[in-house]
Simulated assay, not measured.
Amino acid sequence: MRLCFLRTTPLLWRHPLPGDLDTRPARPDNVAKIRIISGGCVARPEQPLKRDGSPLREFAFQLRSLRTDSGLTYAQLAARTAYSVSTLQEAAAGRRLPTLAVTLAFAEASGGDPEEWRGHWERVHALSRSNSHPAHPVSVESSTAGPSEPTAHPEGPAGSSAAPREQHEHARLPRGTRRWWLIGALVTVVAVAGACAAVFSASDPPAQASATVIVVQNKVAIGPDQLVEDSTPVYLSSRTVSRCARRGCKLSDTDMWSGAKLVATCWTRGERLTNQDASSEGIQRNKNRVTSDLWYRTEWPDGRSGYLSEVYVVASDRGTLGLRKCKPPAS
C-alpha cells in the first residue's frame, strides 16, 4: 500500500502568450490563472512477516528474501515491471497468494528464475485449494483421535462393579492349570530362542536386506523452538545431493509432504544437509534442528527407487535403523 499526497503551489498569474487558443473574454487584469499541482507516492514501510509454517506465508517470505538479495527497493522493482509499488508489496505480505503474472514479474525483476517460480506458485496454489493438505502444518507424531472416555459398567451392591468382577472370575484358571501353562510357555520361548540363535550362528547373514517404513517430516527448524512445514515439498533423487530439481537428478512426480510413508531398504552417505534456518535468531537452542550426511534408499509405489536425506524424516526414524549399507551403484 502507498501513501499518496498532492501538493499545490500558490496561485500564479501570467499574461496570455501568442498562440493561446482560449478565446474566452480576458479578465479585467488581462491575465490567466494557473494552479500548479504536483504530487507523489511514498511506499508504506514493509511490516515484519512472522513465519508460521503455512505455504502461503513461506511463499511471501521467499519473495521478500529474493528482493532483499537483489538489493532493489520496491520502487525500483515497480520501475522494472508493469505493476505498482502497492501491488508488489501486497504480493510479499503473506495475506493472499499473488497472481501468477505478478509473481513472475516480481521474481524476474529480482533476478529469480521465472520457470522455477512458476512451479513454486503452482504448488502453493494447488496446496491452498486442496483439502488433502492443510494450510498449516500438522505434527506427524500427534494423534488425531480424541480423548478416550471411560467405559461404563453396571454397578453391583454397595457400589461395586459387577461386570468387571464377573469377567475376572471367568478369566481365572485353576491354580494348577495356570502353573503348568506358565511352565509350558517358558519352555516354548526358550526353545524358540535357542533355535534362532543356532540358525544365525551357523549361517551367514541373509542376502536379502531387511526393510522398514519411515515417515517423512518436511519441516524447517526456525528460531529457538519452532518446527514448521516447509513451503516446498521434498522429493526423491537419483543421487545423494541437494537441489536435484536444478541438477537434473530429481525423480519426477515424487513430491511429498510431512506424514508421507516410504519403505527404506538401505542407507548410505552423501552430501551433508540440514533442516535448520541458520539465519533465524536462537536457532542454536532449537532441539529440532538436525544436520546429517546419512541418506536412505527408498522404494516408490510404482517400483522406482530413490534417495532421501534423513533430515527429512521424523526423529524416531533417523539413524541406520538396522538396515544394511547400500551397495555402490554400478559404474
Rank of each mutant, 00 (worst) to 15 (best):
T298D: 09
R2G: 01
W181L: 14
P134Q: 06
S70E: 04
E310K: 14
L104N: 06
A26L: 12
E271A: 13
V215Q: 14
G322R: 09
T188K: 07
W13Y: 12
G39T: 08
L12V: 14
V216S: 01
L236W: 06
P16G: 00
D293T: 01
T99M: 12
P154Y: 11
C249V: 06
V42M: 13
H136C: 01
T212F: 00
D113Q: 11
S280I: 08
T99D: 12
W121A: 11
L21V: 03
S210I: 02
V199W: 13
T87Q: 15
A93E: 07
R44D: 02
S38E: 12
Q167Y: 11
V140T: 09
G112R: 07
A330K: 14
E299C: 00
S201M: 13
L66D: 00
F61N: 15
V190Y: 02
A158V: 14
A109Y: 06
H15G: 03
T240W: 02
A330H: 04
A260K: 05
R80Y: 01
L251M: 13
P18M: 05
S128L: 15
T188M: 13
R324G: 04
N286L: 06
S252A: 15
A260I: 00
A126W: 05
L77Y: 06
L97R: 14
L11K: 08
C41N: 12
L6D: 13
L182D: 04
P301M: 08
P28F: 09
R165M: 13
T9G: 06
R129P: 00
G176Y: 10
A198P: 00
T212E: 01
W117R: 08
G319Q: 03
L12K: 14
A171C: 02
R44H: 02
T240L: 04
V313F: 05
A26V: 09
W257F: 13
H168S: 09
V140P: 07
S201Y: 06
S54Y: 01
S280T: 11
I36S: 03
V311Q: 11
T177V: 14
R172N: 03
R67K: 15
G19Q: 06
V192C: 07
P206D: 12
A135G: 03
R51K: 04
P206R: 13
G319N: 08
G223C: 09
Y307D: 07
T291F: 03
G223I: 04
T9H: 12
L66E: 08
R179V: 12
G53H: 07
S309H: 00
S139P: 09
P205C: 02
L186P: 00
K261P: 02
H136A: 10
A278K: 11
S237C: 08
I36E: 08
Q89F: 00
L251D: 08
W267D: 01
G282C: 02
A278Y: 12
R24N: 09
V234D: 04
Q89R: 15
S128A: 15
L104Y: 10
G159Y: 08
E299I: 05
T103D: 05
G71T: 11
R95S: 14
F200A: 08
R304V: 00
L63R: 06
A26C: 06
V228A: 07
S54T: 15
Q47M: 11
Q226M: 13
A198K: 02
E116H: 13
P98L: 12
P301E: 02
V187P: 01
V234I: 15
R243A: 08
R285G: 07
Q226E: 11
W13R: 14
S280W: 09
R165A: 11
L323S: 03
A264C: 02
